[in-house]
Simulated assay, not measured.
Amino acid sequence: MNRFDDQTVLVTGGTGGQGSSHVRAFHAEGANVVIGDIDAERGAALADELGPRARFTRLDVTDESSWSAAVLAAESAFGALNVLVNNAGVQNPPATIEDTEQATWSRILDINLTGTFLGIKVAAPALRRATGGAIVNIASTMGLGGTAHYAPYVASKWAVRGLTRTAALELGRDHIRVNTIHPGVIATPFIQEPAAGATAAIADFYSPEPFAIPRLGEPTDVTRLLLFLTSSDASFITGSEYVIDGGLLLGPALQTEAA
């Protein structure tokens, strides 16, 4: 028996590098998957690829009515919603705080933070109707420290941590668990291609050479942790934060010469 047989999972940003990995893995584990994204062409193509246990719904995470429609689509198609993965996120072009436009600040927080807030707000009643479930918010290692030139993104991911803990406290007695994953540098277009308005990608500033595990992460690294946290194997885990970064935050690994 698969871990997610007869369960329905909604993944936001479901067509991206990490999002599509999550969608495919949940589907392979027996779940009905709802792909939430603003990219209708890629979302519909992914749903068609996966077949009858997959649906695409156009989802603007900054719009509460769009969230309501997505949750309704999940319940209408599959009868219930059991898991929400708040994966959608955007990066700001690098700039100092003094050089960051307020419109950029607002856009990043609207998508990364308000989008996560609205997802929890709208999905919670559906998860309650399903007699419980799980929410995982995808944050970032940038939400655990400061990073120059990325103030909007850093602030949004720090705030997701507090939001996650508050939601865990509010929803725990309803058998709804809420946790956070903090990926490091994961090999996806998100970090390998410049953000809108930028000339350099995040990956240009990071070499995995000093990491304890000297490689970039792969989307499947995050997906495997996500599957655990949303499964019954993690039934006693809520309000927790999981870092998956190959040792990025540990500091540089000791370099030794070969004997």
Score class of each variant (00 low, 15 high):
1 M>Y: 14
10 L>W: 06
12 T>L: 02
19 G>D: 01
22 H>S: 12
27 H>C: 03
30 G>P: 03
39 D>I: 02
41 E>G: 04
43 G>L: 03
45 A>P: 06
48 D>I: 09
54 A>P: 03
56 F>G: 01
60 D>Y: 13
64 E>C: 04
65 S>Y: 05
68 S>I: 04
70 A>D: 02
75 E>M: 04
77 A>Q: 10
78 F>Y: 15
84 L>Y: 07
86 N>R: 03
108 I>S: 01
109 L>R: 11
113 L>S: 08
116 T>R: 07
119 G>F: 08
119 G>K: 06
120 I>R: 00
121 K>V: 06
125 P>G: 00
125 P>D: 08
132 G>R: 00
139 A>W: 05
142 M>Y: 15
145 G>D: 00
164 T>M: 13
166 T>Q: 13
174 D>L: 01
175 H>K: 11
176 I>L: 07
177 R>N: 10
179 N>Q: 04
182 H>R: 07
184 G>N: 12
184 G>D: 04
185 V>H: 12
193 E>I: 06
195 A>L: 02
199 T>D: 14
209 E>V: 13
212 A>Y: 14
216 L>Q: 10
220 T>I: 13
223 T>E: 10
226 L>C: 09
227 L>P: 04
229 L>D: 12
229 L>Q: 09
231 S>F: 09
236 F>C: 08
237 I>C: 05
238 T>W: 10
238 T>K: 08
246 G>M: 06
248 L>P: 01
251 G>R: 13
253 A>M: 14
254 L>P: 09
